[in-house]
Simulated assay, not measured.
Amino acid sequence: MADSWSDRSPLHEAASQGRLLLLRSLIAQGFHVDTLTMDGVSSLHEACLGGHYNCAKLLLDSGAKADVASADGATPLFNSCRSGSAACVGLLLQHGASVHSTHQLASPMHEAAIKDHRECLELLQASGAQIDTELPEVGSPLYSACGAGAAGCVEMLLLAGADVGVGCGRDSPLHAAVQRGDPSVVELLLDFGANMFDRNSEGKTPLDLSAPNSSVQFSLQRKRGPFSLSQLCRFCIRQSLGRSRLHRAPSLSLPHRIQDFLLYH
């Protein structure tokens, strides 16, 4: 957000500091809950950025708009994902906040993925957020998480059925993980079927981007051979089930061991 402080109201200050009693008093005095700064920041933005659940609830209960966007496209939901406040995320969703962003650089889903706030990401996904949305210059949530080394969110997205090949243009999530130098994320992507022979916009494969004699390079070299038959079957069955039906795998007439294998348990 822009660094504009001169037009911040006492309501903004109370919300940003989590001062619930002062906030309640100001509202009672007639301060309007949707007063905006010049750059479009509301008191609800401030409460959510600070992860102040009680202040956010008071503002919403007093009529604050859940989906107001600042000049740079940030919503209270985006700010909640930035701060990692799953409580604020859940509260906003209960008040009808949209999980979809109209701004290419302020997507709640991408922000939660980058910050490795897994619980926030799970709430967004459960509320209908598209996990494979690719934004220009930002890529998909999975790509963003890989680039940030957010292993928890990488795992959550893959288990939820994110497409392991959707990155940012021709750069795949595996390219991003290799450049980040995180062997655990690289291994995870490979286990979910990432193609180590994909070439990015510069014509380079993930192996080409790996640091010489690094653990990442070792992981890629160790898995250069073809996938096993069991892995190929798992990829095929998961794709056939589709993302929306993966959770129904336990209801299939299959031995528990095979069900666990399909779900990466």
Rank of each mutant, 00 (worst) to 15 (best):
S80M: 01
H110M: 12
D132R: 04
D208E: 12
G193P: 00
V186C: 01
R19D: 05
F31K: 15
G139R: 12
D191M: 12
S43H: 00
G149C: 05
L59S: 02
S215P: 01
F78V: 03
G152I: 04
S62Q: 04
R224W: 02
R8G: 03
D208Q: 05
D3A: 13
L59N: 08
P76F: 00
V33T: 12
S80R: 11
P10Y: 02
A69R: 15
L49T: 00
F31W: 11
G51V: 01
L246F: 06
R118C: 07
L58N: 01
Y53R: 12
A162W: 05
L123K: 06
A69Q: 10
L26H: 07
A194V: 00
S83L: 02
R248Q: 13
M156H: 10
S201G: 08
C88D: 09
E202D: 09
I114Q: 07
L252T: 06
F78P: 02
F227R: 10
R24G: 08
S101L: 03
R24Y: 06
A74L: 11
P212V: 07
V138D: 08
V89N: 04
A106M: 06
A56P: 06
H100K: 14
G169W: 02
L207M: 07
A176Q: 10
L44R: 02
V33R: 01
L189Y: 03
G50T: 00
A126I: 04
D132N: 15
Y143Q: 08
R245M: 13
S85G: 10
A150F: 00
L60I: 06
P108V: 07
R199L: 14
S62H: 14
D208I: 04
S184G: 01
Q239S: 14
Q130E: 15
L36D: 01
T75S: 15
S214W: 02
L220M: 04
L157M: 06
N195L: 13
C48I: 03
C233H: 11
R238C: 14
S140K: 01
N200T: 02
S219K: 03
H247S: 13
M38G: 14
S244W: 05
D72H: 09
A106H: 11
Q125P: 04
K65T: 10
N200R: 09
R224V: 04
L232W: 05
L26C: 08
R8S: 14
S244V: 11
A211P: 05
K223G: 06
E119W: 10
S70V: 07
L20M: 11
M38Q: 14
R82N: 10
S144I: 04
D34I: 05
D163L: 09
S4L: 15
E119N: 13
Q231R: 10
C81P: 12
R238Q: 08
Q29V: 09
P206R: 10
S215T: 11
A71V: 05
L49N: 12
R199W: 02
S16E: 11
L49I: 02
N213A: 12
K115P: 08
S43N: 04
G149A: 15
A129H: 13
G128R: 08
V178L: 13
G149I: 03
S144Q: 12
R248C: 09
S83K: 11
A113V: 12
S219I: 01
A113M: 03
C88N: 07
D132T: 07
H52E: 05
D163V: 02
S16P: 04
L22D: 15
T102C: 09
G139S: 09
I237S: 13
G169V: 03
G167A: 15
P10K: 07
D72K: 07
S251W: 06
S228M: 03
G50H: 00
V166N: 10
